[in-house]
Write a protein that binds this DNA or RNA. Sequence first.
DNA 1: GTACTTGCAAATATTTTGCAGTTAC
DNA 2: GTAACTGCAAAATATTTGCAAGTAC
Lengths: 149, 149
Amino acid sequence: MVKLLKERDVQVTPQRLAIFERLVIRKDHPSAEMIYSELTHEFPSLTLVTVYNTLQKLSSSGLCCKVNPLHSSARYDGNTTAHMHLICSTCEKVLDLHDVPFSIELPDWVAGEFQVANHMVAFFGLCRQCQISAAAGSTEGINPASRTA
Amino acid sequence: MVKLLKERDVQVTPQRLAIFERLVIRKDHPSAEMIYSELTHEFPSLTLVTVYNTLQKLSSSGLCCKVNPLHSSARYDGNTTAHMHLICSTCEKVLDLHDVPFSIELPDWVAGEFQVANHMVAFFGLCRQCQISAAAGSTEGINPASRTA
DNA sequence: GTACTTGCAAATATTTTGCAGTTAC
DNA sequence: GTAACTGCAAAATATTTGCAAGTAC
């Protein structure tokens, strides 16, 4: 656990280690608040701010990922036909991808567990403009900014 | 336009109509704020609250969809290996789907426009518990609660 | 006429920022 | 020893709620 953090040049603190461990142990994709309330006994001084900071650090270091990206504000699409999205991680621009065939076969257990209403396929990365800005600008963009799965 | 709304039993008001039209005309997947600031000239009395209400109404009626679902709070995943998610629209539970092969071929223009870093595949619907609650409870759940693409 | 919608104000929730003190390396 | 992290307070942003007045059907 400690090794994983050091490998990615993430400074190790007791809080970070605890947050990271919880995140990996829990299989239910917790929010900052969930992790915070679980650790508040072990670390009475822990604050939600630290949990936010840590999750951001971990995710920018590729040690975890956000289940729900593009979080800043809700975005709506007037096109309800099936299509995919290309989402720029930097400027949050959304491009449409129409008529891209894809096939997928869900395992049998899904039918008994989960009633699928619809699905979503999205690709994250950089739009052309943000690629240019990233190349011209600082060293930002060399590390994948905030990974998502 | 009006017909589309009436077909879905959505009461037509000038504000609603304008919001719906903008949403369909704009291809850039706007946020509530974006639509609001665009219509504020035409409807000086319009408020952001109405835009929020309307977008919610339209999306629950299947006339538009949220690009970024599961918005209430950010959720993180300690597993960074490629996998898909089953997301319950009601309780926001997230289930993992491992080892589901899928193939997809992006159109050629994408390579020039967008630098893909990673992707996400998610299925939305109801988990078993929420299926039961929906069946037992009121008439909720007959209409797909909040569609997503 | 009635039920639904709008607009206003205020509340809530989520996340970010600034700064002083503390800790990891 | 220095740069990075934590915790506190406060701010910023996004979204929801309660309620009176107005509007669609």
